[in-house]
Design a protein around this nucleic acid. Structure first.
Lengths: 329, 329
DNA sequence: TTGAAAGCGCTAACAC
DNA sequence: GTGTTAGCGCTTTCAA
């Protein structure tokens, strides 16, 4: 029925070992033999069985990807970057959605190991202790992209949220802003905490301080933007810093619906930099993160671990820029 | 090193076959034996090797997904639906991006087959003849979701673009619109052609006809929206029908930048219904496709094929609604 | 440069 | 209800 390596060997009058060598590009094959084998492979339309190969070689050329939600623009852009590099290095990716749920993460993790993946990428999301523990004692390399554990013990790719947040706050303070509000989402607590820290530093340096009611933690959705706005608008902020683009857009619209002029009466800056920032009017001021690259570099880092290459730096920090668009003065 | 079924068998003083039965939930095992085996499995932290299982059983519980671009909101929403159903049925998904490129599609297809996937889902995208041919002679079941071949030979899940388009055109004609423009994208030619057909029918029924310059085919991106607007604005249309949300939003903004009032002077309706439609102001009038369901139902259909269940109807047409929001009068 | 043969870890008859 | 055994299709020593 299906053509196996044995059929090719018989037809080409060589051993299975030789066919295997040809298929795997082993140089120790006489050119004439190689040609003969290749001819038969083509004629019989032989396609190596990756499962059998995986069993024999203990390598599946497959990596697992654990992602909170592939339909979230932020994550799907990371995923695309990762995918492209995986393809470049001849890896396939098994993607599973965790909804940032720790139990699901662990289940997925174990499933991926049972599938014998060569490595795992953990995209975004909050890294709860149990998950970090699982990663630390993993039998295959793991890289986290677009997030990190609190102590940065894991191999990771990220931007410096603290610095970005601080820079934004300083700029806007220089520009006259005094009252800041902060809206975090549920997915990456590390990013949120780091960004909040940067904001606090900038405020403290300027002799300002934040109102206790000025922080809201929501769920990073457009709809939740109006909840966020309702919550923080009580303190009448000059600026709202918001982790998620979708939520920031929700905030902008909620404010506008309430008759607040943006950016004149309220400025909004977000951190995700998905393609959405350009698709709304006024265009959303944001930290421009290299999303595609965060995924791509994470995957590249993982390939290094999988091939036992030298790792210069397990915690990669990628550059960012702040772009002031329509939602800031 | 790693724990195998053999280790468990030895430790539990039973045969491998019995362990296999327990692991696979085969009822022909005495409860006491089952308990004993389960205890050992837990104690040794045994995790079945899915690769070995795949080789022996010729089933990998893995499906391949070929998608034009996971970072495109439309496709990532389909992907999420599909993923959830796959997980529900204990399948994993290997996702690969094709960029709607026929060569890549074929390469991915063959790679997936070599990975011994149990089935393949083809998401969105134009089905070129070579791809259709590949699918037709595939050794594993294939379902196409969110697109179809021109003759509907393949198992598929879709909405009726012709009907939707016709309905919109009729409604807007009743409402006074006379000059229509149409903007298609690169990804799904079938959808585009069907939608165009519906528009033509409605126009013809109303004794109207379309200007030759009123059709533009672009690439479904936000940026391309301004190209599309430049192209079709020459005929001064009352209405632009646009397949892609992103592109439609680009059109709206290009028009607004040119001083055109929306919806008073120009109405815009799109077909994709991604979450973007709510995130712009004015909110985009659109066909509300059940994106998540198109993916989910496609996956469910595929599981039926993979398990040799009875198929009632290989071409599933899902219901749609038209929602008139801010970009129509 | 090539071949023989022993697994990789599991499932699935088949026999008991 | 349980065990024996022959593969699944390939890679990888080891020897020649």
């Amino acid at each position: 029925m299906t053509v196996t390596i044995y059929d090719v060997a018989r037809e080409a009058k060589v051993s299975m070992a030789t066919v295997s060598r040809v298929v795997n590009g082993n140089p120790n094959v006489k050119p004439t033999t190689r040609d003969k084998v290749n001819e038969v492979i083509k004629r019989l339309n032989y396609r190596p069985n990756a499962v059998a190969r995986g069993l024999a070689s203990k390598k599946t050329t497959t990596v697992g990807v654990i992602i909170p939600d592939i339909s979230n623009v932020y994550y799907s852009e990371l995923a695309r970057g990762l995918e492209d590099i995986a393809t470049m290095y001849k890896y396939h990716t098994i993607i599973s959605n965790s909804d940032n749920d720790s139990d699901k993460e662990q289940e997925i993790f174990n499933n991926l190991l049972s599938k014998q993946v060569d490595g795992i990428i953990f995209l975004g999301g909050t890294l709860k202790d149990e998950t970090v523990e699982l990663i630390e004692k993993s039998s295959v390399p793991v890289v986290v992209s677009g997030t990190n554990d609190r102590e940065s013990k894991l191999a990771s790719v990220n931007i410096n949220y603290t610095e970005a947040s601080k820079e934004i706050a300083e700029t806007l303070i220089d520009n006259g802003a005094k009252k800041f509000a902060f809206v975090g989402g549920g997915y990456s607590e590390k990013a949120q905490d780091d960004a909040f820290k940067g904001l606090e530093e900038a405020l403290s340096n300027a002799g300002l301080k934040m109102n206790n009611d000025a922080k809201f933690v929501g769920n990073e959705t457009y709809k939740d933007g109006s909840n966020a706005y309702d919550a923080v608008s009580k303190i009448n902020p000059d600026v709202i810093l918001c982790i998620s683009d979708e939520q920031a857009i929700g905030i902008v619209h909620a404010a506008q619906d309430a008759g607040v002029k943006i950016p004149e009466e309220l400025q909004v800056v977000s951190f995700n930099n998905t393609r959405l920032v350009h698709m709304v009017r006024p265009q959303l001021s944001s930290v421009t993160q290299p999303l595609y690259d965060i995924g791509a570099v994470g995957m590249r880092l993982l390939t290094k671990y999988m091939n036992d290459e030298k790792i210069d730096e397990p915690n990669v920090i990628l550059p960012y820029r702040v772009e002031y668009r329509g939602t800031t003065k």
